[in-house]
Every structure is written in C-alpha cells, then in structure tokens.
Computed example of a mutant assay.
Amino acid sequence: MTVSLQSTFGSAFVGLVVSAVLYGVTILQTYLYYRNYPEDSRILKWMVAVLWLLDTAHIVLCTIAVYSVLVLNFNDPTILTTPTWCVIVQTDFNGLIGFIVECFYARRVWLVSRNIYLTIVILILSVIHFALGIVFTVGSFEMTRANFGELVWVTSTGLGSAAAADMMIGISLCWYLSKNRTGIQRTDHLITTLMKYSLTTGFLTGIIACLVVLTFGIMPNNFVYVGFFWLLGKCYVNSILAALNSRESLRERAHPRDGSFLNMSGVTPSVVIMSPTRRRPSLSVNVDTAILSKADYPPPPSASTANSVPSPRVS
C-alpha cells in the first residue's frame, strides 16, 4: 500500500490545529459556566467537568499521535502504515463525549415533548454510536492500516447513528417549541431564538458526522476522515456549553435586572415572559400640597396681643 505523509498525518495535523482552537473555546466556556452558574445542580456541574476532562484527554492523545509520527519517527516511513495506539484510543474518548451530549439533549427532548418513544429512539441511536466506537477500537488493534476498509461498515453505522440522533434532536426540539407559540410577539421571538439554537446544534454535528462517514468510506487508508472526526468531539462539547451559558443571556432578555446593560441603556427587551403568579407592581403617586402666603405688611395684632403690648407715649 502506497501512502503519503500529506494525505495521512498532514491531514491529521490540520485537524489538530483546528481542534486546538476549538479546545481553547472549550476552556473559555467552561470557565464562564462555573463563574456564572454556581447554583446549578451537582449533576450538571459534574457533567461539565467530565466533558472537559474527556476533551482534554482527547486533545492530548491527538497531540501525542501527531508528534510521535512527525517528530519522533520522521525518518521511518513504515510508521505511516502502522496504526498507533494514540490514534486508535482517541476514538473512544470522542465516542463517550458524543454519548453524554446526546443523552443530555435527549432529556431536553423529553422535557419539551413528553414523547417517550422519540426519546428512546434517540437514546438507542446514541448507544449504537458509542458501542460501535468501541468495536472500531478493538478491531483497529487487530489489523493493519491496509485492512481498515473492513471497518467501513462499523464507522458508517456508528457515525450514521450519531448523525441521525443529532438531526432528530434538532428537528424535534424545533417542532415542539413551535407548537408552544402563544401569538405574543415577544414570547414568540424567544421561541424562535431557541429554535435557531437547536437547529444549529443538531445539524452542525450531524453534518460533520456525515463528512467523517463519507471520507472514511471513500478513502479508508488515509487520515482525511481523522481531521473531521477530531472536530466532531470539540463541536459536541462546545454545543452543550453554549446551550448552558446562553441561559443567562436569554433570561436577561426576558427580565432585565436593575443595573444591567439592557436596563441602563433604555432598550426595551424584545421578550418579556411573565409568570402566572407574578404581578406587576402597582404604581402610586402621592402629591403633597402646601399653601404659602406672603404679605407686604405684617398682619394686625389680635386683641390679646394688643392688650399685652403697651401703647406708645406721646409727648
């Protein structure tokens, strides 16, 4: 099998650079989450911590894989046809990240729709994605790069399930959110914003998963698919962090706080959602009036005053 450095680890190097940029965004969003949402539940905080640790381990494994080939074994061409343990193991980290994120969004679908069948289908597709990732890892250790074409069905089925789950999440969230329109312009605008977030999240990861399947099916013996696959995990993590961090922005647009930017700037928020039990504060105006009088001459003294004041003596 004839392979070139450009089509193998050259493509992987490009994917590593873009992944490192997205990992920087992950660090920033993780910091913003823990700073802005200290009152979140422990389960949610632990989930964010686990995703960050998995993403960190993934970028470390990718860096080791590229460094070991391009630096440590730069004069050994046989390394291009030998699968390294770092490239193989990183698959499971990405698969576990995708599984956690898809389960999180499946819970959101359940809360919005209360459709148990739809939620179960999404969870089943997520399990297939994660399980076939493990199958790919085990199979990669037992064969050479020349036989990677035998694993096309594993990758196509696993990542195809991931793409189907992501698109189902995006479409179902948009569908059930659209059914909650009230006809009030401000409320509908907020629902439209949430629908845009859902579509962007679901279709972005779904399109990248389809690109991985397409490139691996056409070119299983090079690493073009690896570059896209490394981006997939970073998009999963950043999508869920963006969804968590956007809550404060949406809440601010719905209920501007005193002293906030929207409140101080005099901009009327585009969305106002009032709770059924929340009443508008009553406005009362108290006007105090007083009558002031002014005379050019002092008033004449009263009778009692006149008796008490001695009359002037005339000489």
Rank of each mutant, 00 (worst) to 15 (best):
L5A: 15
Q6E: 15
T26P: 00
L32G: 13
Y33F: 11
R35A: 08
S41Q: 12
W52Q: 11
T56E: 05
A57T: 08
I59A: 05
V60M: 11
L61P: 09
I64E: 14
N73C: 02
T78M: 11
T84C: 02
V87M: 15
V89Y: 04
Q90S: 10
N94D: 04
G95P: 07
L96T: 10
I97H: 00
V101H: 00
V101W: 01
A106E: 02
V109W: 01
V112Y: 04
V112Q: 12
I120N: 07
L123A: 12
L125A: 03
H129F: 09
T137D: 12
T144Q: 14
E150S: 09
E150K: 12
L151R: 12
V152A: 00
W153F: 07
V154W: 01
T157Q: 08
L159C: 07
A163R: 06
A164H: 00
M167G: 12
S172H: 01
W175M: 14
Y176I: 02
N180G: 15
G183A: 10
I184N: 13
D188E: 12
H189T: 11
H189V: 09
L190K: 09
I191A: 11
I191C: 12
L204I: 09
G206F: 03
G206W: 01
I207D: 05
I208K: 03
L211A: 10
L214M: 15
I218L: 13
N222I: 04
Y225Q: 13
V226L: 06
F228V: 02
W230E: 08
L244Q: 04
N245Q: 07
S246T: 06
R247I: 00
R247W: 00
E252K: 15
R257L: 14
F261C: 14
M264W: 01
G266M: 01
V267P: 04
T268N: 13
S270D: 14
V272G: 01
R279Y: 00
R279S: 03
P281T: 03
S282D: 14
S282V: 07
S284H: 01
V285A: 12
D288W: 01
A290G: 09
A290V: 08
A295E: 13
P298M: 09
S302G: 15
S304H: 13
S308W: 11
V309Y: 03
P310I: 08
